[in-house]
Nucleic acid binder design. Sequence first.
DNA 1: GATATACCTTGACCTGGGTCAAATAAATAA
DNA 2: TTATTTATTTGACCCAGGTCAAGGTATATC
Lengths: 226, 226
Amino acid sequence: MDIASIIADTQLFKGLPNDQIREIAGIAQKETVGRGGLIFADGESGNGFYIVAEGKIKIFKVSLEGKEQILHIFGPGEPFGEVPVFTGAMFPANAEALTKSTILFFPKSAFIRLIEQNTPLVLNMLGVLSKRLRQFTIQVEHLSLKEVPGRLAAYLLLLSEEQNGALALFLPISKGQLASLLGTIPETLSRIFAKMGEKGYISVDGREITILDFQGLEMLAEDGRL
Amino acid sequence: MDIASIIADTQLFKGLPNDQIREIAGIAQKETVGRGGLIFADGESGNGFYIVAEGKIKIFKVSLEGKEQILHIFGPGEPFGEVPVFTGAMFPANAEALTKSTILFFPKSAFIRLIEQNTPLVLNMLGVLSKRLRQFTIQVEHLSLKEVPGRLAAYLLLLSEEQNGALALFLPISKGQLASLLGTIPETLSRIFAKMGEKGYISVDGREITILDFQGLEMLAEDGRL
DNA sequence: GATATACCTTGACCTGGGTCAAATAAATAA
DNA sequence: TTATTTATTTGACCCAGGTCAAGGTATATC
């Protein structure tokens, strides 16, 4: 698959005329990373940003004790690592491939040159950043205003929504990764999955989750006591 | 003070030519809010964004049980409420004046028109959003990877840095607000202030904090055990 | 200056969820 | 398949920090 057709249906570049797309594709460099491969590290200086072409990339922080907190998991079409491009500062987190992945790298200088001539692109970029900002709002809200069962319930409802209302869900990431994404640890997540099963909210079979009590889950996500 | 001179030295509009500034000032509406006044509420649709001219505005979420989590506190020159302008979605949080404040409102339609003609403005806007994104990265990191003493230490160091290295600090917000900003409650914050005093890191007298052991605070902010 | 209204502190107590350890179960490699 | 690594679950235990309750101290209003 060539670069132009990959980027043509990303949030960031959609709606741009074909010649623009080709121009942008011209500055992108395709790269491959193996599972577990580090793409950039917290504190490194960035001279460009990325878009996922294939695979899954996690953005995360690590504490001194080695505990990890996932900030985002990005899939095909999603940009990441843009912060240094517009602030000049360092990457604020780490990026690592969760699976063997193909990514596109957009060098800062060439991209800034493009952006200076093109307003729809710029509005897309603003839209992407704003959406991400809103996601963070929700993440902070969950971390400090909800308990872990509430966060898990909210996550499952989000998954269901993404799969247009399906009740049979398949976790897109491992339970260990999910624990980190929810700001907890695998042991705790495991216990909560078990308890949500016992109480009849869901049934769990490996990565396959079936929602048995949608309304109940919604209540759990809201006021959170399991 | 007229609108043009207020906005001329904001992050967002600095560096723009004078006639541009005047044009932008033309679309802004000055408003006044009393202490405790609500500017917008979580879930409301936004048809514009704001810049603080005078006073202090807190952006926050509230849980069903009424616990509040401050996401940001913005002062003069700082924009807020921009997310709906670029996503079309609702405000993701509440905004309330902490003190009697003057704010400028920029209607969405007029602002989008401006942005479409002007690239330095657009790059400023991208810079502002990116910086805020980085702040959220840090906030999530603190909430899930640090304990409360570490967060407080990091906050005090940030304050010191903002007051170019001063060791005698004055809290810009009440301790209750600070508790919410750090993702905890006043009781816990109070105890931690007391303990940090006993251990000789700081001395506390109302809102006046003096840093006695800068290095110690840095260690506390890093690996966090008090 | 008195009275009301925040704001802050301290104590006693409890619980969500973390740590440590060990047993399975899956997944990947050989 | 078998071996080996990696992911998940379960149990026993513990502690940071939350809740509830009671004073204490500013700050504002009349």
